[in-house]
Design a protein around this nucleic acid. Structure first.
Length: 270
DNA sequence: CCGACAACCTGACGGC
DNA sequence: TGCCGTCAGGTTGTCG
């Protein structure tokens, strides 16, 4: 389930396989995911050496010595499989390094994307141009949220899913962060008090950091790039727990807004 | 500008 | 066993 912690975990898993390595071969098994691959993707990657890996919001970044960055998004169901013994359905793109390691980008639903963009101008990559601050960076502050949410009648849940407000939170971690901050997901964003926004910033930090430390959560089809399982140590407090009891004595409830499930405790989240 | 909603896809699961 | 409806981590475009 690629939200920010899962992408971060993925990038950390890819780093030792790719960094400093030459890309010897690129196989494309279809021309597109959600968008077409760049026409010259294989040509521009083949023979290039990976100089660094990184992450912006839910996007993974693979820099090469040719001045290109391969920008990938895992969508809903994407993951990288490291050194697969055999290729499986939905292994749409395969990289092979000079050292003989193989990486397969598997994405059944194909909501992901792969692009190439000049490394020096990544801020002009169209999907990045509209992104808000990194949730774990210095720019996510109560000040920023107060300004961005001022006067907004949409729910705080909806606003936190908006990548222009904060870049990298998805449905699960928004639910978890709002629970951690004890803020009702239904509250109009513009009415969340300043002290509660501060608490929210801290909750976002806590929830994301814990998830990254746990190696990213595993939900159904997500696996760490090396395929290792069993690192799902960070339990969700509310997500997927409808009907279970909250520590406060309340019951975790679920409702649907904007087509997405929200899990929360109506007793202690206000 | 804002908010609601559909669309893009496949797979897993529960009910009958 | 098998069919069908429902739901899933995200993003983007359209419509009112």
């Amino acid at each position: 389930m690629p939200e920010l912690p899962e992408v971060e975990t993925t990038v950390r898993g890819l780093d030792p396989v790719l960094r400093g390595q030459r890309i010897a071969r690129v196989q494309l098994h279809r021309p597109d995911l959600r968008r077409p691959f760049p026409d010259d993707l294989g040509q521009r990657l083949t023979g290039a050496t990976v100089t660094a890996l990184g992450r912006r919001a839910k996007y993974g970044l693979i820099d090469t010595d040719r001045g290109d960055t391969m920008v990938f998004h895992l969508g809903m169901s994407g993951r990288w499989r490291v050194d697969p013994s055999e290729l499986l359905p939905h292994d749409h793109l395969v990289l092979e390094t000079g050292a003989g390691r193989r990486l397969a980008l598997n994405d059944p639903r194909r909501f992901g994307s792969v692009d190439l963009w000049p490394s020096a101008g990544l801020s002009t990559y169209p999907p990045f141009a509209v992104l808000g601050p990194e949730p774990l960076g210095p720019d996510l502050t109560a000040d920023h949220l107060a300004a961005a949410l001022k006067g907004r009648s949409a729910s705080i849940k909806q606003m936190l899913l908006d990548q222009r407000i904060v870049a990298g939170l998805g449905n699960i971690y928004v639910c978890e962060a709002l629970y951690e901050a004890r803020i009702s997901p239904k509250r109009a964003a513009g009415t969340v008090t300043r002290s509660r926004l501060q608490r929210l910033v801290e909750a976002i930090h806590l929830v994301l950091t814990a998830a990254i430390e746990a190696g990213g959560s595993t939900l159904r089809d997500f696996a760490r790039p090396d395929g290792e399982l069993g690192y799902f140590s960070k339990q969700f407090q509310v997500y997927g727990r409808e009907g279970e009891s909250c520590g406060c004595g309340g019951i975790v409830r679920r409702y649907v807004e904007g087509g997405r499930s929200t899990f929360w405790c109506p007793k202690c989240q206000r």
